[in-house]
Amino acid sequence: MRRPPTLPTLVCAAALLLTGCGGGEEQDNKAPTTPTGVTAQAGSATSVHVMWTAATDDQSVTGYEVFQKGTRVSTLPGNKTMVDIDKLSPSTAYSFTVRAKDAQGKLSKPSAPVSVTTPAPTPDDRKPPTTPSGLTGAVAGQKAVTLSWARATDDIGVTAYDVYQEGTRIHSVPGTATSARVTGLRPGTVYTFTLRARDAAENSSPDSGSVDLTTPAAAGAGPNTAPTGLTATAKKGSVELRWSPPKADGAIESHELYLNGKYATTIVWGTMPTGSTASYTMTVSDPPGTRYSVKLRAKLPDGKWGDFSAQRTVITR
């Protein structure tokens, strides 16, 4: 007599209809590749900037861990390939390695170690470097740009140049450099970069002039929807903004204004402005010398918010 199938057999048979018996989600049994191209540059007497080339994984790289002689000193998400290690000791030799991590927690092998020695402290150096001049840039594909500038000067010496994107430091290069390549950007996005020079005492120069760069859109993406030509002019008790709204199949009736990276207000006109330029006067109550960073995005005729404009920095009068 044929015996009826057991419960495990029935469960397995049912599972075959979905994933196959003994199957399930694809297993990630492979660790990420080892990060390469690791560099370490002393940015000051107490900080080092560590960079590397992104690792790969059969699923995805979800993070990186930076080690100093076997001790983990930083953990970063998978889209970051650089970090500043702070609170170090002056005139001290350090050695760094980097490991990649995937979603299953698997770690790559450590990268080749890189050595760096922080410079001696300069406690009496209170004078910042001069402002870097002549900042220019060029797009280098959908996810990268290159920046160039003229050297700054310092009474002791420039140890690093820091690249800022909308007020956040995103990259550093040695004080001998006059160019940088910034990667990990998004396609079809406008970026505003500025530069500061830094010395061994952590004195930073004022911001350089800004440069706006727009990465090419991804294949099949629609047109860029960012407002263009934004200017910000300080007046007594106010800041006057002028810009060109994006072109769209219909009227642009409102814009969102962001102040220092945070939403501030929605600009809605009772009567739509005519011509190609819009304007708005922002009343400010902070004392003269206050620094503001402003950017805009438009509400498109389909109800969606468009891309952000380039960011502008203004100091109140």
Results as ranks from 00 to 15, higher is better:
288 P>E: 06
80 K>F: 08
218 A>D: 15
307 D>E: 10
277 T>E: 11
65 E>H: 10
196 R>E: 06
46 T>L: 10
278 A>C: 07
158 V>C: 08
283 T>W: 09
53 T>L: 11
225 T>C: 10
136 T>M: 04
198 R>M: 07
208 S>T: 04
153 T>A: 13
101 K>N: 01
212 D>G: 01
286 D>K: 12
100 A>G: 02
73 V>F: 09
225 T>W: 12
30 K>P: 00
37 G>N: 08
57 D>E: 13
30 K>Y: 03
311 Q>P: 01
273 P>V: 10
188 G>T: 06
80 K>I: 10
86 D>I: 13
304 K>C: 05
125 D>L: 11
25 E>R: 06
142 Q>M: 13
48 V>R: 09
268 V>K: 15
288 P>C: 01
153 T>R: 13
190 V>G: 08
70 G>I: 12
225 T>H: 09
180 A>Q: 01
89 S>A: 14
259 L>N: 08
135 L>D: 02
226 A>L: 03
41 Q>V: 15
212 D>N: 04
3 R>G: 13
126 R>G: 14
120 A>I: 12
96 F>V: 05
117 T>M: 11
25 E>Y: 05
273 P>T: 08
157 G>R: 13
165 Q>Y: 06
193 F>A: 03
4 P>N: 13
144 A>T: 00
274 T>E: 12
161 Y>T: 11
82 M>W: 05
307 D>K: 08
259 L>Y: 10
242 R>T: 09
238 S>F: 06
91 S>N: 15
279 S>A: 10
62 T>N: 12
292 Y>N: 03
191 Y>W: 05
172 S>E: 08
164 Y>I: 11
275 G>I: 11
165 Q>P: 03
121 P>L: 11
23 G>R: 09
105 G>Y: 08
75 T>K: 13
224 N>A: 07
95 S>F: 14
195 L>W: 01
142 Q>T: 09
20 G>Q: 04
172 S>G: 07
37 G>P: 07
223 P>H: 09
284 V>K: 06
304 K>F: 08
178 T>Q: 09
8 P>D: 08
252 I>V: 12
270 G>R: 15
230 L>C: 05
249 D>R: 13
231 T>W: 07
69 K>D: 15
255 H>K: 00
276 S>A: 14
255 H>V: 01
44 S>Y: 05
253 E>S: 04
157 G>A: 14
273 P>D: 05
63 G>V: 05
306 G>R: 04
283 T>G: 14
294 V>I: 10
304 K>Q: 12
91 S>H: 12
135 L>P: 00
295 K>D: 06
141 G>H: 02
96 F>R: 01
276 S>R: 14
269 W>Q: 06
175 G>H: 06
96 F>I: 02
13 A>K: 15
257 L>N: 00
144 A>Y: 03
